[in-house]
Simulated scan of single mutants.
Amino acid sequence: MINAKQIIAIVDDDESIRRAIKRSLRAVGMEAETFPNSEEFLARLSSTTPYRPACVVVDYQMPEINGLELMGRLAPSRVPVVFITANVDPDVREKALASGAVAYLQKPFNVANLVEAVEMALAARQTPVERVTPR
């Protein structure tokens, strides 16, 4: 069950993508806040008003701080991340998942898959997930 007070942060430099994701999440009862780049999101995290999103949906290709670098900066906070990208490079997918992304969606993605990925991220936040690395 989704707690209405949980905020999903959407970090993407494409305004139409931010709006579409926010609208899709609101349609299923999730609240979202959007950020046009990693810098603004990080500034909000470090602001004097406490802010901790329940999950972050982050794009890979952004100016200045890309999605992978942002994930690295978020790692200590243990906020679950859903990674989205138009990039087709399989190495990007591997790096995102190896860095701890709960899900990886390639643009354009199905709204149902996005909602499912965010729900997984919210569940992962509440239940510690042990990652097993194959030998």
Rank of each mutant, 00 (worst) to 15 (best):
25 L>Y: 01
124 A>Q: 11
86 A>S: 15
84 I>C: 13
127 T>I: 15
123 A>I: 10
126 Q>M: 14
102 V>R: 06
54 A>C: 03
1 M>I: 03
123 A>S: 14
62 M>T: 02
94 E>Y: 10
102 V>S: 11
65 I>K: 05
133 T>R: 13
36 P>S: 08
50 P>R: 09
116 E>Y: 03
135 R>W: 09
77 S>F: 03
58 V>I: 14
16 S>T: 11
12 D>N: 13
16 S>Q: 09
128 P>Y: 09
43 A>D: 14
68 L>P: 04
73 R>E: 10
61 Q>R: 15
32 A>V: 10
81 V>A: 10
126 Q>S: 15
54 A>F: 00
113 N>W: 04
12 D>S: 06
72 G>W: 01
77 S>K: 05
129 V>R: 11
116 E>R: 13
41 F>P: 06
123 A>N: 11
28 V>W: 05
79 V>D: 04
113 N>K: 13
7 I>Y: 00
133 T>L: 15
97 L>M: 15
99 S>F: 12
47 S>V: 02
69 E>P: 01
35 F>Q: 02
119 E>Y: 05
85 T>D: 06
101 A>N: 06
118 V>C: 10
63 P>N: 12
102 V>K: 02
33 E>C: 04
132 V>S: 12
118 V>S: 09
10 I>Q: 01
25 L>F: 04
15 E>H: 13
105 L>Q: 10
67 G>D: 10
29 G>V: 09
43 A>C: 01
113 N>F: 08
104 Y>V: 07
100 G>P: 08
110 N>K: 11
51 Y>R: 03
24 S>Q: 12
67 G>M: 04
105 L>H: 06
58 V>K: 03
52 R>Y: 01
3 N>Y: 01
123 A>M: 13
87 N>A: 14
21 I>T: 05
21 I>A: 04
111 V>L: 14
111 V>Y: 06
74 L>C: 11
100 G>E: 09
3 N>E: 13
125 R>T: 00
46 S>T: 08
83 F>G: 10
30 M>W: 07
76 P>D: 05
2 I>N: 07
98 A>S: 12
26 R>Q: 13
48 T>P: 05
89 D>L: 10
78 R>D: 09
118 V>P: 10
84 I>F: 11
